[in-house]
Design a protein around this nucleic acid. Structure first.
Lengths: 210, 210, 210, 210
DNA sequence: CATGAATGAGTTTTCATTCAT
DNA sequence: GATGAATGAAAACTCATTCAT
């Protein structure tokens, strides 16, 4: 059993190494510009080894995205257990999400496109489907997964009268959504935390009934 | 002179055709997925002709971006000529910008990354420079160009007391910036205009001193 | 016009060069073992140039096969114009076909499989379709094209009483078909012509009513 | 001893399983398209296990061929023991061989090439040796092994005056050889047995001195 | 012996860019 | 200036084989 465990351990380590190295490379070079060879070279592993763990670069990306979503959801569970106002929970969730997105900038294209308008999808179907935004697999739906958590919080806040109700919960949720982009791409000399915190203040000011 | 003028005209027409066809193709297939052959075939022109007008695919992209910025700036001139509150001008500018971004979604990657944190740029220089975010030419600074207009408006609004001053103009400006992403990627069944309008209301509510 | 013609000429030459070099390489190394790089290196041309003329290695193969079929059919036309017995025409057709197959041994796999039993096809559909025998394209039907010519000759011979009628024309035709394989793979120290000639004598003896 | 015997038994079983599974896969997907992983997965065995029993994929193929030859030879022994005419024995041998070839279509490339002209072999030596026709090991000579049996029968028939002598035994033997290909690839709606039987009749008619 | 993760050479294919016409 | 054939670097992916466990 120890032997099996050791092998399994090594396998897990390898997969972990690939994932981490991939993230590093994606952040450094961007997703498109990172080749699998780049990743595996940086990881000091054989090229073919990649395919022992992932089917393709895209599958890896979505695997990473799924991981992020799971991390967020777990943190959400912790937060909701505590006794806090919705505004407070939202604030913390947004900060955490922004942190994750910030340290995984490479997910943004997918993250953003996940909710892309459908009419575009059909047009794209005519062309070649090489771009990471338009694969036929189940790429869609990561963004929504992220957003669902925020949407629920906003709706609960509206129901309890904590948030204004003359703007739909979806719109407010999308406001938060759009913050993540700012988290990743601000060019201001502020620390990322400060940056988000200030924008958050604006939005929360705007939606809290007082 | 008439002859030369005709020639010039033809040249301009060719360049214009390439640009428009390129935009169509970028919108349909995405930037990466669109090859120069795709563009020139769609434009019914010879492949090599492309290089009589543009140095590279990347240069074309940035040229298109510059065009957008110019269009915006022209419209801004019109607006500022009229007698309106800063909030009103901002509202219209944002709507226009969002429209442009919406109908040129392919620029988003560049648009967003234009303001990317500087430390990233240096790291990227080490890697290969295939990605649209990291060209070697002098393309940096489109986002800033866009943003400068908004920043000035916000600053003027703050100076006149129309906008709150406890949040930096840069932060507020970035809030607008982040709206454009939402403009392009919302999945709500609202029209694009309604969508932006509602978010705009939230932000303007939040920054207007009343 | 001269200019265009020169270009066209060069294009044709290039295509011809690729085809001939490919045949050489297929004969030398076998179809599967010949990579496109092999071909283009042997042809002293750039690798990418191949794809200016053919979509894939398979398409090339079928293009070559089609060429063979056309050559044969042309020769058949000549023969049937002359006044000869069916047996005589068959003899010459077989000899010519065998020569073609002999000097293009690489076509045999396709040539043979073209008439493969259908039930196998369905089974293969389950697996991966990498083999040249089992592509989804229109690969099937080359053999039949070849065979149709012989079948008709045999049927005409049977109708005129020149050939025995107690064996179906299809069976007799397949007998000829199977000769081509022998043409390509005999290990006897006979010249290829003698070899075929003798076998032909056997079969024709067997089918001629005398 | 019982224990060792059990081990030996298990080893044999494993080898047998691999061979049978390999045949199944070769028949289904073709030789080239079948990877060792395919075989061992289908056999529910570890990938590495393959190499405990065979040196390489090629060696396996030739091993399988050898097995076929041995099976044939054994059946020949039975037949020659009985009192039958050479024509009768040949008929049965051909039928059996054709059956084997039919249910092991994957051997055809090797089977056919086994008798390939020698000058080709030397040329091939220059190229890469990936194809199943040109292995570097000592695999040559399967076809001859098969053919030797038939050749002997034909020679005996000629010696006894049962078969015509104005055509060399080798040529006649190759005629039979070529039947096997037809056995495997006929596209007629006849049963395989009928098909072979009819062709056999033609050939035997042609070679029997009345 | 059994196992299967690791490996990397090899293959197909794409595409921005060049350059001769 | 227009053209498009030629090019080759690079990318994704495969798979026979090895070797540590």
């Amino acid at each position: 059993m120890a032997e099996i465990s050791k092998r399994e351990q090594k396998k897990l380590l390898a997969k972990q190494t690939i994932m981490e190295t991939a993230i590093e490379q994606f952040v450094q070079r961007g997703f498109q510009a990172t080749s699998i060879a780049d990743i595996m070279k940086a990881a000091n592993m054989g090229l073919g080894t990649f395919y022992n763990y992932f089917d393709s670069k895209d599958q890896l990306l979505h695997y990473l995205l799924d991981n992020l979503a799971v991390q967020l959801q777990q943190r959400l569970q912790h937060l909701t257990a505590e006794q806090k106002s919705k505004a407070e929970i939202l604030r913390e969730m947004v900060l955490m999400t922004a942190q994750l997105v910030d340290s995984n900038k490479y997910v943004l294209p997918l993250f953003l496109s996940a909710g892309a308008r459908p009419e575009q999808a059909s047009e794209e179907a005519k062309g070649k489907e090489k771009d990471c935004d338009l694969e036929p697999h189940e790429h869609r739906g990561h963004g929504p997964a992220f957003m669902a958590m925020f949407l629920q919080l906003v709706q609960e806040g509206q129901a309890s009268g904590e948030f204004r109700q003359d703007v739909s919960a979806e719109i407010i949720t999308e406001m938060f959504h759009s913050l993540f982009q700012a988290a990743a791409f601000s060019s201001l000399p502020l620390s990322f935390e400060e940056n988000i915190t200030m924008k958050l203040r604006l939005i929360i000011d705007a939606i809290c009934t007082k």
